[in-house]
């Protein structure tokens, strides 16, 4: 039951420390111009010195990402359910959904900004667009994995179709929805950066975009570090939420009294 919670971060942390040390050595020994590749200690200094600037911009991006994921989860779940119920809709819409994933976000984002303005709305649309797909695909797989005999059983119970969905298919697909959301948070952060670069006046993506031409590369890297840490935290948070909300999904068969 507690497998995975106690052990894993240490190895990852050790590897991370080793990689950062290599990077530091590489820059310090003159492998790269510090203006192009700042040393980790410069990034760390920027994280401290620019903390209020980074902090206020982080809050903007965090709001976009959280609302975007929420939007993608709600619409993704509704969309999956609709596709699950209607094979016609599935055949009509699913290929287009796949096609939507091939749209190059750096090109779509400015168009959306022109269309929807400079507010939070185009950011939410971009984030939802990049995270929606993994949620729909995993949730659909969750619906499809329900044992057909269980559906037959509900039919002999005279259950209307929507009640079978509510009592069987929906709860059965929740772990898959969580899986989709966990994949989604990592790309959602990338989506947020592209959306901010297309037109924004705040946010970590905007700050990154502003820092590069000013040769404030350490600050740009600091923004990236915060974005990564944020994505990892969201992933970990979702994992914890899943264990809390769906303990049965982690409960393997245990021997019990006969």
């Amino acid at each position: 039951m507690r497998r995975g919670l106690s052990g894993w971060p240490w190895r990852a942390a050790a590897l991370l420390v080793a990689l950062v040390a290599l990077w530091e050595l590489y820059v310090d020994l003159g492998g790269a111009d510090p203006l192009i590749l700042p040393a980790p200690h410069e990034v760390a200094r920027s994280l401290w010195v620019d903390r209020s600037l980074l902090g206020s911009n982080f809050l903007v991006t965090a709001e976009e990402v959280l609302l975007g994921i929420l939007l993608a989860s709600v619409t993704g779940l509704a969309f999956s359910a609709a596709i699950h119920f209607s094979p016609t809709l599935r055949r009509a819409v699913y290929p287009l959904l796949v096609a939507s994933q091939t749209l190059p976000i750096p090109i779509v984002a400015p168009v959306l900004v022109l269309w929807l303005g400079f507010g939070i709305l185009p950011k939410l649309v971009v984030i939802a667009l990049v995270s929606f797909f993994s949620i729909v695909v995993t949730t659909l797989a969750g619906f499809a994995a329900v044992d057909p005999d269980l559906i037959k059983l509900m039919r002999t119970f005279d259950a209307p179709r929507q009640r079978t969905f509510r009592h069987i298919e929906l709860p059965a697909a929740l772990p898959s929805l969580f899986t989709g959301a966990k994949i989604a948070v990592t790309v959602a952060v990338i989506g947020a950066v592209f959306a901010e670069q297309a037109g924004a006046s705040s946010g970590l993506g905007y700050l990154f975009e502003q820092s590069i031409p000013q040769l404030l590369t350490a600050r740009a890297y600091a923004a990236v570090v915060i974005l990564s840490a944020f994505a990892i935290s969201l992933f970990a948070l979702l994992s914890l939420a899943e264990r809390w909300a769906l303990p049965w999904a982690y409960q393997r068969e245990q021997a019990a009294a006969p």
Partner: peptide, 23 residues
């Protein structure tokens, strides 16, 4: 059905009452 197909997220009590919930 051949296999018990109990719902893993439901307690024994809620599994037993599924036919009633279905109605």
């Amino acid at each position: 059905p051949q296999r018990d197909l109990l719902l893993p997220w439901c307690t024994a009590l809620d599994n037993a009452g599924l036919a009633l919930r279905a109605r």
